[in-house]
């Protein structure tokens, strides 16, 4: 038995460092709110992506699964919102309700057979689901208007009050993101979250302890699909327009880049990653053409050299401390 002293020194530093990415990202958000203008729009996009990536993080970061197809659920809900509000006079909230229901039903139907797959089969099946929804959005012109897209979608509003100002929208999205992050945090710190981590760590060991791996994978899939659906609907109301490209493959790659920059499996990761990745192209406006190229290259470099992302600086400390404790 190794006797080790309890770790005291890095605790404070660790907390401080752990809060750093949060503070920086929240600072940018506050700045955008007061400055207004174009930065507000950029941050609104970022916050919508935070919701999407937070969902992806539950499924991939917590439960250790793989999905290249969550854009499908964003598209299903987003198009439902757009269609019902523009063609049938629905208010945004009930339209979103319908979109969410559709996205979750589809997630349930495809989730069951899909989640039995592993490795590249799982990756490819989810990719196919995303692509099928994309193709249908392009081809089903009577509802989606194909490449032209649907425009004139009303802004978010509840009971007659519409949020039309950019600042108002940013404030609203901030509340949504705060709630989404809270949910993500509570999931992490719960029996449910532990079961997901167990499935991620070893399905066999989880099952030997009475955790039904298939059931928890499906639950995580549905939860993350709900986040994706929310993001999809928020997008159409904030922008007022939707086309298939909004939910194309680039949405998936962008979300992955955010997730890896922020730190997969961490609570702050989606927020930090989405803010950084949304700001980058604004800082290098003259390199607009190189944007996707830069994302791709950044993602490769991250995967190789920093697979745990930026918001894990603190846990690197923890690991180092833990190693020391074990050795001593």
């Amino acid at each position: 038995m190794t006797k080790s002293p309890t770790i005291t020194f890095p605790d404070m530093t660790r907390r401080g460092l752990g809060a750093l990415p949060w503070i920086a990202a929240a600072g940018v958000l506050a700045y955008a709110f007061f400055v207004g203008g174009y930065l507000t729009t950029v941050m609104s996009f970022a916050l919508i992506y935070v919701v999407f990536v937070t969902g992806l993080n539950v499924f991939m970061g917590y439960a250790g699964q793989v999905s290249f197809g969550h854009n499908a659920f964003a598209a299903l809900s987003g198009y439902t919102s757009a269609y019902l509000t523009t063609s049938h006079g629905f208010a945004p909230l009930p339209a979103f309700g319908a979109g969410l229901a559709l996205a979750l039903s589809c997630a349930l139907i495809v989730g069951y057979p899909t989640l039995r797959l592993k490795g590249h089969y799982l990756a490819m099946a989810t990719l196919a689901i995303g692509l099928i929804v994309y193709e249908v959005a392009v081809e089903w012109t009577s509802v989606t208007q194909g490449y032209m897209g649907i425009s004139g979608i009303p802004p978010i509003g509840i009971a007659g009050y519409e949020i039309t100002s950019e600042r108002g929208q940013l404030a609203f999205l901030t509340v949504i993101v705060a709630l989404a992050t809270l949910v993500s945090w509570r999931i992490r710190e719960s029996r449910f979250g532990r079961a997901l981590s167990a499935v991620a760590g070893s399905e066999d060991a989880a099952r030997a302890l009475g955790i039904s791996a298939s059931r928890y994978k499906l639950s995580a899939f549905l939860a993350s699909a709900a986040f994706a659906a929310l993001a999809g609907s928020l997008f159409v109301h904030v922008v007022g327009f939707v086309s298939p490209e909004v939910y194309g493959l680039h949405m998936v790659v962008l979300a992955f880049t955010m997730l890896y920059v922020g730190g997969i499996g961490t609570i702050a990761g989606p927020f930090v990653g989405a803010v950084i990745i949304s700001l980058l192209p604004e800082m290098f406006r003259q390199f607009k053409d190189y944007q996707d190229l830069a994302y791709g290259a950044a993602l490769i470099l991250l995967l190789i050299y920093a697979p745990r992302g930026l918001s894990t600086i603190s846990s690197l400390f923890r690991r180092a401390a833990a190693k020391k404790a074990v050795v001593s």
Binding site: R186, S190, R191, F192, L209, S219
Partner: peptide, 16 residues
């Protein structure tokens, strides 16, 4: 704690 799964209750909703 994961080992305690079987004799505790509550899933996604309880977590939230």
């Amino acid at each position: 704690k994961v080992g305690c799964h079987l004799h505790t209750r509550g899933d996604l909703l309880a977590a939230i």
